[in-house]
Design a protein around this nucleic acid. Sequence first.
DNA 1: TTCACGGTGTGAAAAAAATAACGATGACAA
DNA 2: TTGTCATCGTTATTTTTTTCACACCGTGAA
Lengths: 206, 206
Amino acid sequence: MSVNVSERSVRRLSLYRRFLLHVQASGGRYLFSHDIATATRTSAAQVRRDLMAISGSGSSSRGYHVTDLLKSISCFLDAPAPQHVALIGLGNLGRAVFAYFVGRHPNLRITLTFDIDPAKTGRLINGCPCHNVLKLNHLCPSHGIRMAILTVPAAEAQAVTDMLVRGGIRGIVNFAPVTLHVPVGVFVETMDFSISLETAAFFSRA
Amino acid sequence: MSVNVSERSVRRLSLYRRFLLHVQASGGRYLFSHDIATATRTSAAQVRRDLMAISGSGSSSRGYHVTDLLKSISCFLDAPAPQHVALIGLGNLGRAVFAYFVGRHPNLRITLTFDIDPAKTGRLINGCPCHNVLKLNHLCPSHGIRMAILTVPAAEAQAVTDMLVRGGIRGIVNFAPVTLHVPVGVFVETMDFSISLETAAFFSRA
DNA sequence: TTCACGGTGTGAAAAAAATAACGATGACAA
DNA sequence: TTGTCATCGTTATTTTTTTCACACCGTGAA
Ligand SMILES: NC(=O)c1ccc[n+]([C@@H]2O[C@H](COP(=O)([O-])OP(=O)(O)OC[C@H]3O[C@@H](n4cnc5c(N)ncnc54)[C@H](O)[C@@H]3O)[C@@H](O)[C@H]2O)c1
Ligand SMILES: NC(=O)c1ccc[n+]([C@@H]2O[C@H](COP(=O)([O-])OP(=O)(O)OC[C@H]3O[C@@H](n4cnc5c(N)ncnc54)[C@H](O)[C@@H]3O)[C@@H](O)[C@H]2O)c1
């Protein structure tokens, strides 16, 4: 399934899908590769190449059929059944992310949250139970959770990551400004605001 | 200054710096390229190559002198004087980002904020004035602001971006889940939570 | 002193990614 | 029908990025 498709390509496919959903919502039926390209800031050749990899086929005269293409991309990107996600750390950012998340990702579902603060554990957050982080090892496997969103303080992030890995998590979206160390086979995506900021600062002067 | 240094290299240099600051704080004095490499999940050759580009030189017996290297990297990455930054959109995320930002980036300073909600404009947020977004065109140039952090709803992001560009902004860190269109010479870094999430979801199954 | 060792700096090689090129296809106008 | 045209799918080429390889250097032991 994931054979021969690079990380960058997956990221672009996800972008294409978002654009296609907008087009579909506003009634568009067909798109050319260069339409998708300009909307997502890439090249027509790149779009065709990415779509080739997932065998989303278009017609040379009308282009790509929006709904069909959406189906192809979603079939490729999404798991057959919704994936369960754990959220660790219900501070400012964790709660904001949870609120943002809800309703936006039909194929992903935050089913458990964890914190270490007794004021937060044992309650429901957005209708979702919050457990003590020590139960992570136990609860993630039993709930079939393979993905986590990490919004704990930087100093705690590696320790929590180790727990997540032991609990069988294979994909982590990390908001803490640290480089996480994980075994091969575990995917980490760090949303590093500081690095992005410094990078933008640098190139704003270039 | 920025000649011959790729975006990826800048990003890594920023990571190296963060690690070096930790090492410095805990009293470390020298590091080998492979130390930096393992800490930042890259290779020793990559580290040496990146550092070569900014002429941060090390000794073959002791490695790199932490403080000297920090100086070299900071001299390369940072502007001679602190850069001024505007923050647009003081909702949940905007306020969280502002709080996070404070004290963390000595060489960057959020000097103005903007919103469209009359309940927010005209006040001080963290001691920083919040103006109506319509004044953006006028105030950014007069305050020497060349960078912006964008935390407005997705539907507003492009319109606000257009204002920012007209106001002379050259670097944008965008949190809205949209692909922004800007003229060449303007750098956009989109912190795209949805795309990162979907990418992690994909590779957690790979 | 002399040698072995482990590291740096850097050109060469390899790998990965993006771009360009081009035959094939179908729509449409003449 | 026939020719033109724009776009697709795919292969080839170019560019970018990473990794490899190795000469050279400073240190410490013999
Ligand atoms: N706030 C932002 O805008 C922002 C921006 C970028 C990055 N970040 C990063 O995101 C992370 C969270 O930021 P925040 O502002 O929400 O911080 P916060 O202090 O508000 O929240 C942290 C939460 O994690 C919990 N926690 C602490 N240790 C834990 C552990 N071992 N296990 C489980 N839960 C634990 C705390 O109880 C708290 O609820 C930090 O790493 C921060 O650097 C935040
Ligand atoms: N909350 C999250 O965790 C999260 C995560 C990822 C991405 N995002 C994105 O970040 C952005 C902000 O999210 P939020 O949760 O803070 O939303 P929010 O609605 O709480 O805040 C948006 C703010 O922008 C202001 N605003 C609206 N239109 C404006 C305009 N034209 N000019 C200036 N200001 C304007 C509003 O008054 C409000 O203060 C959204 O694009 C969202 O998709 C949020």
